[in-house]
């Protein structure tokens, strides 16, 4: 029954991402700089508290602390931001869903991809800081696009599923908000993997957000390749999330119109 849409997906995504980007930054005097201020403030506060006040809370081998913190914050912030805009995207774009024939899967995916614009800026900042603190770029940096692509795909899958469920159960977003608060403490942002007791280590590695943090620190700080088990976990998580997300979305989308 579904109507064929014969358009140009690349052109469409490009326009939707640009649209979000323009709406978000056009009315801000500092524009794009805002996307740097939040992680920098968080980095400063966490570095101060855990690096100086509670010195020893971090791992002394994992210096410099600001880079260490950002390796945790950048993936976590992206996860929260992209998941939340993704989950509410269908309801937020009711006008589009009810009035324009556009493939609906595009809406949550574009919401996640829009967050990639300031993600890229934050990663650039992180790489600059890494170099500024005297850590050398190394060939394992080539792993970064791979792990991030898997991670973004993982979040797209979650956004597809949750945006569809949010149409029918509007408190989905509040459940997700609580979940991300818990997640903040379950991801080693301001503590290191080495302080995690062995019996919990596997749980941490299965969590894709923690896995990405782990891989980032391996690459940027230790100058080693991320372990294959992490890449495998990320691949499995991304395929599973995209598969399940699409399944849920396809199942629920025929009745979006009635429920928005």
């Amino acid at each position: 029954m579904e109507r064929h849409w014969g358009g140009d997906y690349v052109f469409l995504f490009e326009n939707l991402i640009l649209k979000d980007f323009r709406i978000r930054y056009r009315n801000m005097s500092l524009g794009i700089l805002w996307s740097l201020i939040n992680p920098l403030v968080m980095m400063g506060v966490l570095s101060l508290i855990f690096g100086r006040v509670l010195a020893g809370g971090g791992d002394p081998h994992n210096q410099p602390f600001p880079v260490f913190i950002l390796c945790g914050l950048v993936p976590f912030n992206f996860f929260v931001g992209a998941l939340m805009t993704g989950a509410t995207s269908i309801v937020d774009n009711a006008g589009l869903i009810k009035r324009v024939l556009v493939p609906r899967e595009v809406v949550p995916v574009a919401a996640v991809l829009s967050n990639c614009v300031h993600l890229l800026i934050q990663i650039a900042l992180l790489l600059l800081l890494t170099v500024a603190f005297g850590l050398r770029p190394n060939r394992y940096w080539f792993w970064l696009p791979v792990i991030w692509a898997l991670y973004v795909a993982f979040v797209c899958g979650l956004a597809l599923g949750s945006s569809a469920i949010n149409v029918y159960i509007r408190d989905t977003r509040y459940v997700l908000e609580s979940f991300t608060t818990v997640l903040f403490w379950l991801v080693p942002i301001f503590y290191s993997f080495s302080i995690i007791p062995q019996k919990y280590a596997d749980i941490y590695r299965v969590n894709p957000v923690a896995a990405l943090v782990f891989a980032m620190r391996n690459i940027l700080m230790d100058g080693i390749a991320p372990p294959m088990s992490i890449i495998e976990n990320l691949t499995i998580a991304a395929s599973f999330a995209v598969g399940a997300g699409l399944l849920i979305f396809r199942r629920l989308k025929p009745r979006f119109y009635e429920h928005i």
């Binding site: 849409w5 014969g6 358009g7 140009d8 690349v10 052109f11 469409l12 490009e14 326009n15 939707l16 640009l18 649209k19 323009r22 709406i23 056009r26 009315n27 589009l96 324009v100 024939l101 556009v102």
Partner: peptide, 19 residues
Amino acid sequence: DLTGAENVRVNAAMMGMTR
């Protein structure tokens, strides 16, 4: 908040127009 030109592009892309 988008200009007329920007809205034209977004809308045309949604309606299936190619670049």
